[in-house]
């Protein structure tokens, strides 16, 4: 017996299973990052002095990264919109851009990290750096997770477009919701860590 509502919406909820699932998952992610932000506030309030992020961290690089990540969010939503307009080749292009931009984000992050390490700055240096490395590191892991999913949907997973286009579009929408969330987290991380 087949599991109902994998592709089409259940009439009374108006949702297909995957969409409800990803939103619940994102709710738990909100609590995960919420706990980290809460820790940040608690540690900062308890600290006798707290450094200004812009004096210790590389704001220009982070600004570029913000632009990169926001752009990747736009290409992501465009890739979904292309599927809605039944334009598969455009989907491939936009999804390709999304993946490319996420790699750019990681490369910039890599340079940021290594320049810190080369100045003998590690998570153990101070509480500020501890929270900086932990939060951006965890966010980076989420970016890598997003790349894996998006690369699958860009490459081998796109076969489903032929067999079950509705379900494939759903998958891209779900991956998109996750990706926008990763973007959303960064939108808060950026001012909190770098600008305040």
């Amino acid at each position: 017996m087949e599991i109902p509502y994998t592709a089409t919406a259940r009439p009374d909820t108006g949702l297909y299973n995957g969409k409800l699932g990803i939103w619940l998952f994102l709710a738990s992610e909100v609590m995960l990052f919420g706990a980290l932000f809460s820790s940040y506030i608690l540690l900062r309030v308890g600290a006798p002095v707290w450094p200004h992020g812009s004096e210790l961290l590389n704001v220009p690089l982070a600004t570029i990264n913000t632009v990169v990540l926001i752009s990747s969010s736009v290409t992501m939503v465009m890739s979904w919109a292309s599927l809605m307009m039944k334009d598969f080749s455009k989907y491939r292009m936009y999804m390709g851009f999304t993946i490319l931009l996420s790699f750019v984000f990681l490369v910039i992050k890599y340079f940021e990290y290594t320049s810190k390490f080369s100045h003998d700055i590690f998570p153990s240096t101070s509480t500020f750096y501890a929270i900086y490395f932990t939060m951006t590191g965890l966010h980076g892991l989420h970016v890598i997770g997003g790349i894996v999913v998006n690369a699958y949907l860009w490459g081998p997973g796109n076969k489903m477009w032929k067999s079950d286009p509705q379900r494939f579009t759903n998958r891209v929408e779900i991956a998109g919701l996750y990706w926008h969330f990763v973007d959303l987290v960064w939108i808060f991380l950026f001012p909190v860590l770098y600008l305040l």
């Binding site: 609590m31 820790s39 153990s124």
Partner: peptide, 25 residues
């Protein structure tokens, strides 16, 4: 489970950092 467990996951990550990376959360 969905909404209460993630903060412990965050706490677990912070404690791992304390133990492995030498931070002092």
């Amino acid at each position: 489970l969905l909404l209460a467990f993630p903060p412990l996951e965050a706490a677990g990550v912070l404690q791992l950092m304390d133990r492995l990376a030498g931070t002092s959360f």
